[in-house]
């Protein structure tokens, strides 16, 4: 029985640690602020490896593609980025939040 109630298969931070142990380069995205109706609360994670594999979520699937693309940059440069998504964003057609909310995502390299 798993009395910790951690989901070993789907928990993004456990997966990130596992990837790291297997020698992969990893980026971690974290929702740090939300305004209005946002699908994932502050603290939610998306983890990405250098091949573009990812686990977890920072939205209901609306902006994950954009975060994954940025993550490859961050893995390369090692420089953290703050990303903002929302309907007011000029890229709304591609990656806006259809729910009308706004989110701020902190994207950093592991190590």
């Amino acid at each position: 029985m798993n009395s910790t109630y951690l989901d070993e298969v789907r928990d993004p931070l456990l997966i990130a640690e596992d990837w790291m142990k297997n020698g992969k380069d990893v980026a971690i995205a974290t929702v740090v602020e939300t305004w209005g109706s946002a699908p994932r609360q502050a603290g939610s994670h998306l983890v990405i490896d250098a091949e573009g594999n990812f686990h977890g979520s920072v939205s209901g699937g609306c902006v994950e593609g954009a975060v994954v693309a940025e993550a490859l940059d961050v893995i390369g440069s090692g420089k953290a980025k703050m990303l903002e998504f929302g309907v007011a964003d000029e890229t709304a057609w591609q990656v806006g939040l259809s729910c009308g909310g706004r989110i701020k995502v902190y994207l950093e390299r592991l190590g």
Partner: peptide, 13 residues
């Protein structure tokens, strides 16, 4: 994120 910090956090969890 610091790799050691991630390991520590996961161990606590």
């Amino acid at each position: 994120m610091d790799p050691y910090v991630l390991k520590t956090l996961n161990a606590e969890r």
